[in-house]
Design a protein around this nucleic acid. Sequence first.
DNA 1: GAGCTACGTTCTGTATACAGAGGGCGAGAG
DNA 2: CTCTCGCCCTCTGTATACAGAACGTAGCTC
Lengths: 221, 221
Amino acid sequence: MRASERAYASLRDDILEWRLLPGTVLGEVEQAAQLGISRTPLREALARLTADGLVEALPGRGLVVTDTSVESVVELFEVREALESRAAALAAQRRDPAVFEALREEFRASDALLADPTRHAYYDLVRRFDEAMDEAVGNSYLVSTLASLRTHIARVRRLAHDNPDRLAAAAAEHLLIVDAVVAGDSDLARSATVVHLHRSLNNILDTAESGRLTPSIDRTA
Amino acid sequence: MRASERAYASLRDDILEWRLLPGTVLGEVEQAAQLGISRTPLREALARLTADGLVEALPGRGLVVTDTSVESVVELFEVREALESRAAALAAQRRDPAVFEALREEFRASDALLADPTRHAYYDLVRRFDEAMDEAVGNSYLVSTLASLRTHIARVRRLAHDNPDRLAAAAAEHLLIVDAVVAGDSDLARSATVVHLHRSLNNILDTAESGRLTPSIDRTA
DNA sequence: GAGCTACGTTCTGTATACAGAGGGCGAGAG
DNA sequence: CTCTCGCCCTCTGTATACAGAACGTAGCTC
């Protein structure tokens, strides 16, 4: 694999997993030495991270890992709702029924997946659900925009605690979306997606380690 | 200005203005020589263009300017509608009325702007309208996503012919959106935006130089 | 004591040199 | 005549060297 690719994957992972905390300064020489590569491929990796919005150039301080705030999570879900609700509606119109019928069976049996404490199989199912939706929508701009948003969602998700009740509820929400897509019901698919995202956001805001999200500034003062 | 920045701006402009046509191969050595810089900053520029979706890496052929098709324009507007209709609704809730009252006066007087054959003043007004909407929404993810879409819109727009009738109609459509935003009417702002985008898309599809957009493959055959 | 200036250090931005991979073309064999 | 194998050439990916700018610091002056 290319050195720049490894550096990108490694740094991206470190940021998404909160090993590199917001505000961390990423010096070129230091990081290049750490990863055992030269500055050239590292710069390419940092440029990609900057484009992703995981890193930003702060004048005077160099490149730093971007901050996450309660506001930014709300903003993220605002865009996510606009795009995913539309995606769900389009998927309901354009889907291959067989694909979503298969997913329906899997979500119906997701209790078993959630019994596993690691829940890898469940998260993999959700990933394949996202992929199937992307495929069904068949819109490359929408897919790449959602991919970009999912990067940030992944970072924030790591702060939230998915308790068993929430996971069971989320599985039921996904099942409803899949049902609607199978039925070709755009309106229901859209509404079910909106519901799912609202509950998901609330769960994140309720359970996120509040110390990690820089608190909102009370503008009513 | 940095050499990489100049290279990026120059190449981006060449692509948006159709001086670099879809399918053009961008060799690093050749382009670097052309721009009078070394490969290092050029590579950075090409990486940014790739992230923008204006350039893509085709295995075996190197980096080429991305294609534009009728389908891709339709896809573009699908995403645009999802995001801008939501943006308009949010702007109607969050706007500073004074800003949009000022814009309303300008759009009311846009006949005069459209009399100018260059129409620079009119396009500048539309740009400031977009900026005011972005500002009112106050969602950085939404703004940066829209910025990315606008890049592609700019490229496609260059193919379309804005006849005076269409421009006058577009001004009226903008005025309706602004009216709704001033009134704080989210539903109307959303609907007016949907209408505007549909008409705008139709105008592009009707008037675009068809040779430039690779024709859709008739899958009904 | 405080402020300004000058120097040094460190960082980013750019150029260049080098290595490895991949593709194209030509020659030879079937 | 065509297909295949091999070599060469070009291109990308990486390392390194160099230049200029910016920040901090220390010393001098007022």
